[in-house]
Amino acid sequence: MNSADLNPAGINLVACVKWAELRPEIDPLHGSVEASQRSSGFSSSDFAAVESALRLAQAWSDQGQVCVVTVLCAGPEDAEDSLRDFFAVGATRVVRVDLAEQRSSAQVAELLASALVPSQLNAQFVICGDVSSDRGSGSVPAYLAHHLGMQQALGLIGLESTDPGSLHATRRLDGGRRERLLLTAAAVISVEGSVATLRRSSLAATLAAKQKTVELRKQQIDWPTEVNRLRPWRPRARVLAPPAGDDALSRILELTGAQSGSTAARTLRLDPEQAAEAVLEQLAAWGYLDDSPPA
């Protein structure tokens, strides 16, 4: 996106979506995932993000603001037919950032952010789905907010426009409670799929969208070579002698130590180094460090 894309007098809303495998075929033998164009698509929360952007744009346009809705997608070329459908429902522009292979959430966010940095697009609100369908962690919006230096409101279950450039958002809290937020630009928000269902495009718009062009951005990011993640060391399970006892109950009691004395809880206030020593000391006392790895 270049400076010509800016809508300086109005509000730019960007809906971020990700082309993902919706019904992956997983080989039971070697676990490889087979993707196909026909079983790929956008998650319901991504559709909700686009619909939310369109509704906000409509509401603020009715109040005299010039609003531009851009759909920004991270995905392969296969996604383009489906991306054109976003023109049909009212998106002003659709941009695809080329992403041909699986990447981590952090990398997807970095890729999207590279197309969203303020020098390229003056986005007041970036609206994402809360999770993608391919084992999504929901962390892309948070990474995006970090990269763009915007405030964030994630996992929203309701959005209402207020004055142009601000909106009320509802977020679910524990215990059935709700949190109401007043958001102003610039912010990254993510919405659950239940927030909105993408509108059905008219036939004329669907036909016209066939002629539209999805803009392509090939962002050059030199990601470091990934190494297999190292798991933290875990002590091995201890081998215990079979419990003695005449009946099953007594053997279970001995095995679980349910009626034996337990270590009383202690609260220690120590420096970090001393705390680490204390933890190791206690683990050793419980017998967990007998097979600790060599230093």
């Binding site: 059905r200 495009s201 008219s202 036939l203 004329a204 669907t206």
Partner: peptide, 9 residues
């Protein structure tokens, strides 16, 4: 007539 809005063709 189709099931889309303004869906006559």
């Amino acid at each position: 007539r189709t099931d889309r809005p303004d869906g006559d063709l």
